[in-house]
Every structure is written in structure tokens, then in C-alpha cells.
Amino acid sequence: MGLDRRVFMKTLGLAGATLALGKSTGMASKKDDPTEFLGLLYDSTRCIGCQSCEFACAEAHNLPEPKDYPDPEVVRKMDENRRTVVNAYNTSQGEAYVKEQCMHCNEPACVVACLTEAMYKTKEGPVIWRADKCMGCRFCMVSCPFDIPKFEYHSTNPKILKCDMCYDRLKEGKIPACVESCPAEAIVFGTRRELIKEARRRIHENPDLYKDHIYGEHEAGGTGMLYLAPVNMDKLGFKTNLQNSSYPALTKGFLYSVPSVFVLVPALLLGIHEATKNNHQTEDDGDE
């Protein structure tokens, strides 16, 4: 992953500098530690299903306004025209709402899948898509455990669409549109560490209201999007069979074997070739 490498190189460089210059530079490295990913904390118990976030998202990204509304009878899905949806579910705790969008994984499968670095985990945390790099292979869609990236099948210049945590707004110093628009303060924006702390505080203060689980803290290796809910997340249409280790780890073994195969196999082949060089005569009438 681009970021890990960068962090690693930075750390390596700083470590070298620290050794040379003494303590003061070491302190500086902590201050500009970029691993503090930003994220969102969504609290299902506060959400009133008003769709303000959907409208704000559509406006921020020039997408058509939603025409339908949350209904326990239907499961609304994200598509190439909406990056977030709110769904209603009938649960043991009454009707509950849940907002869906990209989870902004700490180690995103889509980013590792992308062979052109079009899917990109920014150092701030949002996972963004870059049009000038993407070749439209849709491997990100195959790999994403949450089925988030959407593709414009009916376009000659198709784009991959997904929530980018309003990355452009973040650069202007604003907060994500959905957070800003939420009248119920169901979504909080902040660093992932602060959000987890806040989520723990809410669970601790209201243990009867919440399930004692922060969805996204460990799922898929940890995500930038965190959920609090009154019931288990599978009652709200979320996958709970996901692994807690990161998805890129699944291909690590294979990719790590590549260099050794490239060194060992040719040598082995050449060795066999030399060893069997004089077998022509015996092989010709071989086992026939």
C-alpha cells in the first residue's frame, strides 16, 4: 500500500535523522504522524431516517436527488447515482435506521486490488478514486468485502462511484456534507482514535441502549466508518461474517512468493535441463 510504504520510508528517514541529531527531531516526527486516519461515527440510535445526508451528498457530488425513502419493506441500494443510502429495519428495539456508504478501510481491499493506483488511500484516511488512472477493470468491486464501488455500465466513459468522505471539501477545511447536514447529530466526524473513544463512552453511559460492539473497529482490519447500533449489525443488513484481519493479507502470501519463484524456478529448470541433456537416445524409445 502506498501509504504504508511512505510512512515506512518517512519513519526510516526520521529514525536516521534522530540518530544523527538527537532527541529534538524525534519529537517532531510524532507531531506529524500521518497514521491518524479520519473517520465517521454513525449512531443508529440517533438517526431519524430523514435522508438529509442523502440530499446533502447528492448536492455535494452533483447527483440526482433521491426519490424514494427508507422503508422496512425494501432494501435500498447504493448505485452509480447515489453514494449513500439510509435504510429502515424492523428490529426487536423497534424501527431502526442505518446509513450505508464506503467504509474507508484502514487497509482497503479495493486499493490493493487496483493495478493503476486509481483507488487510493489518502494519508488523511478517505479512500478516493482517480479517473485519470482507472482502466475500468472493476477488480476493486470484486475485491471489496462490502460491495461498495459502483460502475457506470451505461456510459462510454464510465466512472467508479463511491463515497470519498468528501475529500475535496476536507481539503478546503470543511467537514463531509452528510455530517454537516445531519440535524440529529447522528454522524460525528473526527480522527478514528477519538471516534472510538467517543463510541466507548456512549456505550459505557448507556449500556441498555447500545449493543456492546463498535462495528468497524475490527471488521476487515478496521474501518474509518464506525457504527453504533441498538441491535446486532446483521439485523440492519450488514455482513457479520467478515474476517477481522485485513483483506489484503489474503493475497500477501501469494505475492510474497513471486520473487522467490523468479529466483528459484529458472535455476531449477536450467539445472534439470543440464542434467537431462544426454538422455536423448534413451528417451526416444522411452516407455513406448
Partner: peptide
């Protein structure tokens, strides 16, 4: 099958090496 086939050159000419991708290796 590529939605944006004109960018197929990206992983080859080297301005965007997604080296952690299995598809990069396969391509």
C-alpha cells in the same frame, strides 16, 4: 471488458505501478 480501455497503458508505462495488486502481476 475494460470500462476505460484507453488507460490500459497506465500499469505498463510505469506512471502508476499498483505493485501490490495480483491483477498487476497477471497483466
Amino acid at each position: 471488458d475494460l470500462g476505460r480501455p484507453w488507460n490500459v497503458i497506465n500499469p505498463i508505462i510505469g506512471n502508476n505501478f499498483g505493485t501490490s495488486s495480483v491483477l498487476f502481476l497477471v497483466a
